[in-house]
Design a protein around this nucleic acid. Structure first.
Length: 460
RNA sequence: GGCUCGGUGACAGAGUGGUCAUGUAGCGGACUGCAACUCCGUGUACGCCGGUUCGAUUCCGACCCGAGCCUCCA
């Protein structure tokens, strides 16, 4: 079973082979911790978490690093606006980010390097670039000279000429070439800063990833991921920094997810059309959000809406309903992944929609299975869920869990069910139906069976 | 303006040169005291116009429409 991944650098799917056998290094651009994560920010987290899970099924050691950017203009601005310290801002939003991502069933990454803990490595990298003639000092800044790199622009498939032609931005006068970017910039006295050979300052945006990847994962890593909008300039500039400083390959497979759309427009902080994960968690469980994010392949834009979430909720309900049917069936966890269609789908550049379709196919089989076949089918469904980070909860709890605190209690529901049962025994079907209607009005669906009546909540 | 990338049924979303994605919702039926669950069935979907082909949603070309990047942004 070989994993194929679409590599942005080569613009095609490639068979994945790690540099070091049985060992994978992966780095994903994490948050700048100055406000709450929105659901668009959650997409790469869920996507690469799924990849992390998949990689762990076939490699002994998978090191997954996701950075925390805790020094940045936006953080400084947020602190100033809130009249609070930088540290209190970054501490608060780092914690909230971790909480929110955990709600989405995202496993903690292996490493979570903080920019401010790696300043020395950034200074060292800047020094190397200066020594090798790829950077220059100008008006207190240290800048990377893009013209010093022959194949600058390779990842984003644009040339320096194209960039000049398309330039819409005023060029800072300390730049030799409009495409040159800051490695180190001077810090105002009241802003966070670190002593450096070029005076007190702080790192440019692109520097931290290059420096931290080298410090924590090595000169060459296998996978580097992030959103499409990071391709240029962020990742292009990371490549420039790392390749020019240390030579060799920086990243072997570049992966970029498409974004979430709202009404055909991308969801973004600057457009103001975003929903924070925290807000959405008021109305939907984290697993619903995760499922919605996985319902499209990661390189396709995904239309985000309440309807999408409602559909995700309904679909998960039906999958959990299937699992409830086999609640008392033992699980056969001896799943041969190599034979599983869902596993093939995931290995094909993380084709999660097809993997989900295969789960539906397994559910269909399970409904028709004779008892002897059920443990294996249950095991296969759970194995698929495990890779996708879904279906890991107790089915009855999932189906009976109240979305809101003002919903009717389980005890009240069960009391009414008993009353209805009595009415049915008395052949008082009018009253029995009345109870059914009463509960339905409160979002509770009753299911009669030979074993008795069970119930679930249905959101709509 | 430069550089990319898309347009699939009510909605979401795969995929393919020649029977079928799949799900949610809808409709019809079976089952049910009534329901729900489940099962069975069901919708002339592939932006538009040409071309290649025995055959194109799938390949090629033009056109229309949309999005993204070029500036902080997943």
């Amino acid at each position: 079973m070989s994993l194929t991944l679409y590599n942005t650098m080569t613009a095609r799917k490639e068979i994945f082979e790690p540099l070091v056998p049985d060992t994978v290094t992966m780095y994903v651009c994490g948050p700048t911790v100055y406000n709450l994560a929105h659901i668009g920010n959650a997409r790469p987290v869920v996507v690469f978490d799924t990849l992390f899970r998949l990689l762990q099924t076939q490699y002994d050691t998978v090191t997954y690093a996701r950075n925390i950017t805790d020094v940045d203009d936006k953080i400084i601005a947020a602190a100033r606006e809130g009249e609070r310290s930088i540290e209190s801002v970054t501490t608060e939003f780092t914690a909230k980010y971790r909480e929110d991502m955990a709600q989405l069933n995202a496993l903690p990454p292996t490493l979570e390097p903080h920019a401010t803990h790696n300043i020395d490595a950034m200074i060292a990298l800047t020094r190397t670039l200066l020594e090798k003639g790829h950077a220059y000092e100008s008006q207190g800044h240290v800048l990377f000279a893009v013209e010093s790199m022959a194949d600058y622009g390779k990842l984003s498939k644009r040339s320096l000429d194209d960039m000049l032609a398309g330039a819409r931005v005023e060029v800072a006068d300390y730049k030799r070439h409009p495409g040159d970017f800051v490695l180190w910039k001077p810090a105002a006295d009241e802003d966070p800063g670190w002593d450096s050979p070029w005076g007190r300052g702080r790192p440019g945006w692109h520097l931290e990833c290059s420096a931290m990847i080298r410090a924590h994962l090595g000169d060459t890593i296998d996978i580097h991921g992030g959103g499409r909008d990071l391709i240029f300039p962020h990742h292009e500039n990371e490549i420039a920094q790392s390749r020019c400083a240390h030579g060799g390959d920086y990243v072997r497979y570049w992966m970029h997810n498409a974004y979430l759309d709202i009404d055909g427009e991308k969801m973004s902080k600057s457009l103001g059309n975003f929903h924070t994960v925290r807000d959405l968690l008021q109305s939907y469980r984290g697993e619903v959000l995760r499922f919605a994010l996985l319902s499209a392949q990661y390189r396709s834009p995904l239309n985000f809406s309440g309807e999408l979430l409602d559909q995700a909720q309904a679909t998960l309900d039906s999958l959990y309903s299937t699992l409830r049917e086999v609640q008392d069936v033992a699980v056969d966890m001896e799943v041969n992944l190599a034979d599983e269609p869902f596993y093939h789908a995931l290995n094909d550049d993380l084709n999660t929609p097809v993997a989900i379709a295969e789960i539906h196919a397994l559910c269909k089989q399970l409904h028709k299975a004779v008892p002897g076949e059920k443990p294996a089918l249950k095991g296969r469904i759970l194995a698929a869920g495990n890779l996708l980070g879904i279906l890991e909860q107790d089915a009855v709890e999932w189906l009976q869990n109240a979305a809101t605190s003002d919903a009717i209690s389980a005890a009240a529901i069960e009391a009414l069910i008993e009353e209805r049962q009595a009415a049915k025994l008395a052949r008082n079907y009018a009253r029995a139906d009345e109870v059914r209607e009463e509960l339905l009005a409160q979002g509770v669906v009753l299911e009669d069976s030979r074993e008795g009546t069970r119930w679930k909540r249905k959101s709509d």
